[in-house]
Design a protein around this nucleic acid. Structure first.
Lengths: 139, 139
DNA sequence: CTAAACCCTGTACCATGGTACCGAGTCAAG
DNA sequence: CTTGACTCGGTACCATGGTACAGGGTTTAG
């Protein structure tokens, strides 16, 4: 089939905005495989795969900058799988740390909510009092 | 003591940038208690408490918009503690959801890393292959 | 053949949380 | 009284991940 998609068709298939695809192009994340004489971008269906790659990596918490790095690694197959593993591990540590922070935050919020009794005026609210002093006990 | 701090002194005491304080003022988060004839902002040490409040609430995951809401609640003490409790609970649910997502992400990354053997060229890397297909199994 | 629907480039704009620079006025120490 | 540090308001800029619009050219269906 080797399609030959226009940017609009690609956008629809990937459920993204046309502008977003052009934005990804500027960010060096996704290049059209060709151009028509008219200047229209032409994409193969590898473009769709790559677009999904980008979205998947984003969903895994990689920034577009990091996605770009990942894609460059893939292109230069001099790079070894280990390089990617190292990147993924670094990202894992980042994400783990963030998850821990959020757990602490959950605990802090929970304890604030527990001490709060709904009927009091706000100037006696223990949540606000706590924020006034020193919060974020989970860290 | 009731200090009478300049913006620079306040900034130093709270370890924030002077510009940040002015930015907070624009965002209705922190108003100077007075102005000198020269136009210089004058802050009482309640300002320092309020600045810490802001930073604490931020650390708990509240956006500046939400912090502003919180502060407005505190000012209008017609509002009841329950209002704040509701807000804190809503934020708690948000944060819990985010924490769950992140743990899913951690699991997805871990499983990707496990299947990856460091010596292979990138075009056979299971992490990249996985990203090519469909990742984010944790969702 | 015409009109709608699409595409092009370039630029500006959105939110978020700040940071930096400008020219001018003010304050405090020596 | 001067000089350097501080402050003022206004505006522009940073990164991030897009989105929108203007003013054209192209393609395609009727």
């Amino acid at each position: 089939m080797a399609s030959g998609l226009t940017i609009g068709q690609l956008a629809k298939m990937a459920s993204v905005n046309v502008q977003t695809i052009r934005y990804y192009e500027r960010r060096n994340l996704l290049q059209p495989s060709d151009r028509k004489v008219s200047g229209y971008r032409v994409y193969g269906d590898d473009a769709l795969r790559q677009l999904r790659f980008i979205k998947n990596a984003q969903a895994l918490g990689f920034s577009l900058r990091e996605v770009s790095d990942l894609l460059n690694l893939r292109v230069s197959s001099v790079a070894r799988c280990g390089t990617i593993q190292v990147k993924a591990q670094a990202k894992l540590r980042q994400v783990e740390a963030k998850a821990r922070d959020l757990r602490g935050l959950v605990r802090a919020l929970q304890s604030l909510i527990c001490t709060c009794q709904a009927g009091q005026p706000t100037d006696q609210c223990p949540i606000l009092q706590k924020l006034d002093k020193e919060a974020a006990s989970g860290r």
